[in-house]
Design a protein around this nucleic acid. Structure first.
Lengths: 226, 226
DNA sequence: CATTCTATTGGAACGTCGTTCCATTTATGT
DNA sequence: ACATAAATGGAACGACGTTCCAATAGAATG
């Protein structure tokens, strides 16, 4: 890769970081994480791997950049919300929907700690936590609770999609298979897990996700009242 | 790979699933996720890749099995706790410490959704949530909040360790580098993140982690009182 | 004890990946 | 028009997960 210089492209059909990222997102959406290879990318862009490396340092950075393109879109959506709580809920749902539409974002996020995509989310949520009146010394832990919960659900959704794809079945069939295997566990050793198997079938991911957010929000409120 | 039959080994130095998993854990601890290859494993066990495949179906399953060995140890530790809350705190800290000692477990966990290692954690936490008096229909979301938070922190710790290793620096130096890059962000667009940069240096991961657990626990309590 | 059979072994080989290298092409500045 | 530098694209490298298969070693059989 090299430093950037020129402002206007030298050729009409020239390569650019943005075109590469755009193509990467398309491949990731269409073929999942494993589908993104420099060879697939070369073919789609009608070029060779070497040309791509002129614009992008390595695959990890490319994945992070593709992830950031999605996150930036999700976090720049206009926020209509009366209270900080309402805005946090909207932000969280925005993340959920973004990862639901682009499952690879879930795992890409966890591989880029402290980098741009994560910082975007941290900032948006942090401001609302601050607006909530959480004292300075508790803000990190509070934002961390929300952020890590969102990341945890996202990573889980990503993994479900990935495993399902590998076995050639869709997400709900995969969850069904998990529910079946849970219901065959030892009744004594895994009583709780067995009781959850029923709930796992046909539950609403999104509802359960936002219920978790509400739980944390009410924890924040409870702590604030002490 | 093949089906299991024999009970006693045919040779003294014979291969076995357990010996392979044990060696995998050693390699993962010593060289991180990328260090675990069938070639490295072959060398350590003084055999060839083909022999390993007789006992293990593929790399993914091997990683999950290695992960499960760590999780099983952590979740079978004796639990002394007066209240369900205290037990949940102990379990969560056990997970934190296990991932801190074996960072690769953090990312291995997210790649095995609904499988044995996750189920172990789900069961242990679920029982305490149940003991807490959370109504049946809220148990899934409640356990999910705790579990996903733990997973999120774990994945984050794993990623920090992995990125640090790649750059040849240790964890605290890596966090320091992140803090530096945060403090150079635009003051208007990233005011909150900048204010967190200071906290990031020299904070106690473990304390912040348990503070998040307490936040969720108090949210559970608050919801229960409604 | 000799022989057969089958579970296991270990190393060679295949296809794919990320990445590097480099000869070639294209636009710019003189 | 020519020299220079930016940008391209395809060949090649080393490492990986996995498959294949000829060789072994203990168990079972006679």
């Amino acid at each position: 890769m090299a430093k950037k210089t020129r402002s206007s492209p030298r050729r009409e059909d020239s390569l650019s970081r943005d075109r590469i990222i755009e193509a990467s997102v398309a491949i990731l959406d269409g073929s999942g994480e494993d589908g993104l290879t420099f060879r697939a990318l070369s073919e789609r862009l009608a070029t060779g791997p070497g040309a791509i490396y002129w614009h992008v340092p390595n695959k990890g950075d490319l994945l992070t950049a593709a992830c950031d393109a999605i996150i930036a879109r999700a976090m720049n959506a206009p926020l209509v919300g009366a209270t900080p709580q309402a805005i946090i809920r909207t932000l969280a749902l925005g993340m959920f929907d973004a990862i639901d539409a682009h499952p690879w974002v879930g795992s890409a996020l966890t591989r880029a700690p402290g980098q741009l995509p994560m910082v975007r989310i941290l900032e948006r949520i942090g401001r609302q936590v601050s607006a909530l009146g959480v004292p300075d010394e508790e803000q990190w832990a509070t934002v961390g609770a929300l952020l890590n919960y969102i990341l945890g659900v996202g990573a889980q959704n990503a993994a479900n999609g990935q495993l399902g794809r590998m076995r050639g079945i869709d997400r709900s069939d995969f969850l069904d298979a998990v529910a079946t295997s849970w219901s065959q566990l030892d009744p004594n050793a895994y009583a709780f897990t067995r009781s959850m198997a029923a709930h796992l079938r046909g539950h609403d991911d999104r509802n359960d996700f936002i219920a978790g957010i509400d739980l944390i929000l009410s924890g924040i409120e409870a702590s604030r009242r002490l």
